[in-house]
Write a protein that binds this DNA or RNA. Sequence first.
DNA 1: CTTGCTTCAATAGTCATACTTTTGCAAGAC
DNA 2: GTCTTGCAAAAGTATGACTATTGAAGCAAG
Lengths: 238, 238
Amino acid sequence: MASDTAVGELHGSVLTDLGTRIVSGDHRPGDVLTLDSVGLHYGVSRTVAREAIRVLESMGMVASRRRVGITVQPKSLWNVFDPRLIRWRLDAGERTDFLLTLSELRRGFEPVAAALAADRADEHQCRILAAAVSDMVMHGRSGDLDQYLLADKVFHRTLLEASGNEMFRALSDVVGEVLAGRTHHGMMPARPNPAAIDLHDQVARAIRLRDPAAAERAMREIIVEAAAAVSEPADDQE
Amino acid sequence: MASDTAVGELHGSVLTDLGTRIVSGDHRPGDVLTLDSVGLHYGVSRTVAREAIRVLESMGMVASRRRVGITVQPKSLWNVFDPRLIRWRLDAGERTDFLLTLSELRRGFEPVAAALAADRADEHQCRILAAAVSDMVMHGRSGDLDQYLLADKVFHRTLLEASGNEMFRALSDVVGEVLAGRTHHGMMPARPNPAAIDLHDQVARAIRLRDPAAAERAMREIIVEAAAAVSEPADDQE
DNA sequence: CTTGCTTCAATAGTCATACTTTTGCAAGAC
DNA sequence: GTCTTGCAAAAGTATGACTATTGAAGCAAG
């Protein structure tokens, strides 16, 4: 049955499809499914349907009750930090709005992560940060936005790692998505703002010099600069 | 056998017990289970065992592979923002360390949430904030720490709600736990610092006056004050 | 007409079993 | 020593039967 798909992880595909449909508004809060309907729809056994539903339930996206069925839950109950859910929402239509939400989140934690990194980063991490900045300078000059983005991601990921706080580390992908979203949605000047790169350099230096306050301050300015760049997209001022 | 869940939710109790055991180090990363062993251990069918494992897998805590079994994953792969996981870790031995991690997180996002709330809070939320502050004053004077904690929680929860950012809102429970942890671990002076209460008042006022910068600044000072209070526990200076 | 009780049926929850698929490992072939 | 082959362990899937819960309809009493 349904053997045209890669066998061995049926529950996974059902989960992904159901999750995507809920996120995209295909199934709306209050809608009711049943195990049988799910099994029938996807051509899978109840066993598989149950496992997919169980995971969605653990993400707060559905609730299942006897005699009633499986109810899609309101957004306010979702585990919005679940990486899978974040992925689905980025892939769905609300991408731009959601990127804004994630940006606000980033604005909150990244400066603090920088401060912590200034206390805790090791030699190796400091070197990676410096190298990333150097790459940003190079690819910023040449105007290679893809390579620039890559270096930018390495910088921020390393910084969050160096913060020594596992919660911050877990948000690396979020920051990566925000950065990627910016470049891939024309919210980036054709040539990265040298001032922004300089701020990254300041952060890296402050971390190496074990100056939390300076690191936090510079990181905060990075975020401010990014927000400003978004509001006035292609305004060249270099 | 973790009977905190009623019958009819066997998978839930298995899940809770397994999760707790993993968090508490009873099962360590690299350890291998099998569905049969789980089923046997808890006296449940493979179906139920599978569902519990599936959820743990979705939390990044285990990975299951054919012919190998179910492997406990290293901490670095866990979905550390999952509310259930947070609960388990708070209940387990590493409570104090973990509260510190959460405090750092809070230090990051709560000032930003305050700034956003200054833009977005509605009349009703402003009133709740003011009422919470007033309660804090009252119970702070009378020295009723439990009631004080309650008002404090309401304040912060309302503020995060008012931020209008669902990610921040989802962290309400984390902040609540941090606050509760502080009072229940003797990290609180016998009588709350009046300066701290005044800072809460400043935040509430700044939000009502639509002054994001002031709200953010005052909230940041609240966090600083809290950190200072922890480092010098019973040092009365009122 | 309203209230409360009873019955019914829909639906999730659980279990046991049989079968399929993948894959680590060991034994043998070269 | 390296490659191939085959075996068995374990998860993945499917099915059917049974249990438990519960919303709702129907009925009875006030």
